[in-house]
Structure formats: C-alpha cells, structure tokens
Design a protein around this nucleic acid. Structure first.
Lengths: 129, 129
DNA sequence: CTGCATGCAAAAACTTTGCACCGCC
DNA sequence: GGCGGTGCAAAGTTTTTGCATGCAG
C-alpha cells in the first residue's frame, strides 16, 4: 500500500509545472527549497515510484543522466545535438507504428519510445548567422 | 590520425558476428579469449571510437548498461519487457517520420531512434501455456 | 501502533580518464 | 622514433540500498 507523502506530492507538482524535463539532480535542488532536508535518495525513490504509477515519464536520451517529464499525454521528445536541451514534440499520425513494427515480428509489441535529434530552433537560428 | 589496432579489429569483428547486442562487459569477456590482457577501459574507448566512426551503433535502452550493435544498416530495436533481450526489428515505411516530426517544430530534425517494447516471441509463447 | 517513507551515508553500477609503456606507421 | 593505442588503476557519474527514525493511516 502506498502512503501519501508531502515530498512526493512536491516532486510531482514540480514536474508538472516544468517543461524542460529536469534531471533528478535539478529536481533535488528545487525540492530542497521546500524540504531543506530531503535527500537525493528520496528523490530517486519517488521518481521511480511515480514512473511505475504512470504519473510521470522517464526520458533516457542515451547520454547524460535520465530526465523526467510530468506530461504523460502521448508525445515525443527532441534532443538538440548542439545545446542538449530536450523539447516536447507532437508528431501527428505515429500511432500506427506499433502495427507496422509487428508486421515483421512474431512477438507482441505493446509500445514504443522515440527520440528525435537535430538542432533546436534556438541553435539552428544561431547557425544562420 | 587513427592507427590500426588488433584489439579494435577484434571488437569490431566480434560485434559484426553477434546478433544479440552485447554490453561492454560481455564484449570484454569475449575479447579476453583472444587478448587475455585487454582492459575494460580499452573496450570502452574502442566502442566509443567505432561509434563515432559510424562503424557500430550504441543502443541505450533506458535501463541497464548500454548495448552495442555491429549492424549499421537502418533498423530498429525491440526490447522484451519480460526477459530483457534486445532484438533487431525491420520496420517498413518509417523513413518519413522525421518529416512528420518537423511539421510542428521550428528547429531542424536530422534523425531519430526508436525502441519498441513488448514480449518477444519466446516470452509471448510461454505466456500462452 | 504498524508499517511505509524518509534522511543519511555507503555502496553499487556503469563509464571515463591519467599515466607510463607498447606497437603501428 | 614519434605518436596514437593499451593496460592498469583510480576516479567520476549516476543510481540504488541498508538502516534507524519519522510520520501517515
């Protein structure tokens, strides 16, 4: 049975309020403002728990620490090769790709994640200069 | 300038011969058969180098250590939620998704990776019993 | 009160790096 | 022989965990 905790609620609220997909460390630094004694271990434990409850999402970009996203609606992520920022990306009409993938496969496909790479609006603008 | 090394060639050959996407540790254990004194650091250095040369591919599944793939032709990966195995997956007609992604985005999209999750043929068969 | 959650710190897991020596070009 | 590669070990980074205490139910 899962018990309410003020720390967990704070972490959840923080994530929902942010759109930059912070790392555990960033979350930790920010939650400290409300809970000066919170430990990084507690942050990790709650992030893992919230993920398994489906209330948040973990982003493993393949480099650097994992990031977390309070937005659980289906969407994708873009990672800037230039500045490393992680942006939300809504891609229309990708719902079918599980079915496409299953066509050459004898197992059961239940979901997918995808990461797009390139230059973010900010960096591709600077490149034009 | 990059110099030839027998260790690197051996790592490359090993990866090309395997279809199970081994981890650095597994590669290390196997290369040891030919080079008993090779160090894990050398394995990591060569894997990083081969990746940046585009001769192999790194797979970051989001859990556990990174895996490596000697197959550089465009294809996707499937990760079994049940047994953790990583399988190759050819998905037809996914070339366009960079373009789809760019439709709602003001930066430049250069590529993507995608991972599919579910039950592998082996595990979905056991589930039927 | 009971037991899950926390804080703290140690440790685990994975990867990178400094340095002296080795071997390709 | 010069310089990049290796082996070794230490250290870095990220995440997990054991344990005593705290707090929700």
């Amino acid at each position: 049975m899962i018990k309410y905790s003020r720390q967990r609620e704070c972490i959840k609220n923080f994530l929902v309020s942010r759109y930059d997909h912070p790392t555990a460390e960033t979350i930790y630094q920010n939650i400290k403002k409300d809970f000066p004694n919170i430990s990084l271990g507690t942050v990790y434990r709650n992030l893992t728990l919230l993920c398994s409850l489906g209330e948040i999402q973990k982003i493993s970009a393949g480099t650097g620490p994992d990031r977390f996203d309070g937005n659980t609606s289906p969407h994708y992520h873009f990672i800037c090769k230039c500045c490393g920022s992680v942006l939300d990306l809504n891609v229309a009409g990708l719902d079918h790709i599980n079915i496409l993938a299953e066509q050459n496969f004898h197992g059961k496909i239940e979901g997918h994640v995808a990461y797009f790479y390139g230059q973010c609006p900010c960096c591709s603008q600077s490149a034009d200069l």
